[in-house]
């Protein structure tokens, strides 16, 4: 799965589960730009885990600040080749 495909899936999940209205770009910050509060962030994390069958551990989550970080973390867990 390419990073572009992962981004598209994350965008779809964000629309379905946390009320995303527009589009996602890798540079967007989860808290400041996507306005994810703690419950929404948790909801998105759980839905990403369910869809990709991966585990986002607290250590991995601590490194995620932007949509790009999130896509990269998912790609690594899926074993996608480096970008």
């Amino acid at each position: 799965m390419t990073r572009g495909e992962i981004l598209a899936v994350v965008e779809q999940l964000a629309r379905e589960h946390v009320g995303l209205a527009g589009s996602l770009a890798p540079g967007m910050r989860l808290v400041e730009d996507m306005e994810l509060d703690s419950l929404k962030a948790l909801t998105l994390a759980v839905e990403i885990e369910n869809r990709f069958r991966i585990l986002l551990t607290p250590e991995i989550e601590a490194e995620i600040a932007t949509v790009g970080d999130l896509v990269e973390a998912v790609a690594r867990l899926l074993g996608a080749p480096d970008a």
């Binding site: 948790l42 759980v46 885990e49 369910n50 069958r53 991966i54 585990l55």
Partner: peptide, 12 residues
């Protein structure tokens, strides 16, 4: 039945 990371939910 729906969720993958049960440890996360248990922690919750």
């Amino acid at each position: 039945e729906r969720h993958f990371n049960l440890e996360r939910l248990e922690a919750l």
